[in-house]
Amino acid sequence: MKEVILSIASGKGGTGKTTIAASLASIIPNSAYIDCDVEEPNGHLLLKPKINTEEFVSKLLPKIDPYKCTVCGKCVEVCEFNALINLKFEITLIDEMCHGCGACTYFCPGKAITEIEKPIGVIRKGLTEHGILFIDGLLNIGEVAAAPLIKAVKRKIAGSKNGQAGYFSKGEISNRDKTSKQNEISISSIKSTDDISQQYLFEKTYVIDSPPGTSCSMVEAVSDSDYCILVTESTPFGLNDLKLAMEVLKTIDIPFGVVINKYDASYIEMEKYLEETKTDLLMKIPFDRKYAVAYSKGILPIVLYPELKNEFLGLFDTIKEKLMMVENV
């Protein structure tokens, strides 16, 4: 395995997940940042990629032929996503709810259903100034089902992971070496990891920014990850949501560790819980106003604050070990 997938998730929104994902992507050699938080993709604000391709994604919606449909209700029964409603005189579809899974079409006894394409969002890809590969998905407004788009975004990784026609051509990857004035700081941050990168065996590391919460979109985003970082914060809510997210990862069997953001030493319950459950605590980031200010200006805090960058280098070191362990399994 020459490529790894590292996902960054969080039981709730607003924990600084995107900042952490984008920071890691800029520190890890040969990384790609994949924003799967398609309802509210923010990574582009911090990484400022130059988008060079946009690809529209559609899903297949069932279309019911009223002349063939007997309103038997079978399709409504098999739809897991509550997208079909039985009005008794006919079946109606709530477009936005439909995941385009095809179950209704498959099970319709009267072959009354055909499928039509409907655009649900767009996948953008590009490169940042610092040469980080960037992919994100942007869900159309009003569209509820994020999972199909996330799946499409992740297919971009699968293509290259299987060594098939990768999403990025070689030419694009070599752009990575390009330097410019504004990116000096980050280039130096990549340089300073040289000693690390020499031992870092992976040709490509995909950093996935997962949607917050523990919904099916989150599961879709983190599944197939080699390792997952759960971001939380030192509050009872943070702990509660962390527990839920840990549950999910255990169920789908993905190794994980925890980063506590906006760390508050007086809230001891969090660390107590991690200790009790023998969960790896990867990093603690103390709350600092200046980080929040940087973020609000669309600047990665590690670019401005070397002490924070060092913390992230340390985090990368820790994760690297975890990934190598995964690799050896």
Partner: peptide
Amino acid sequence: QMQSGAGPKAAELIHH
């Protein structure tokens, strides 16, 4: 308990 789509399903339920 539904994550989403509860409204239309509820409408269906009372209709039935």
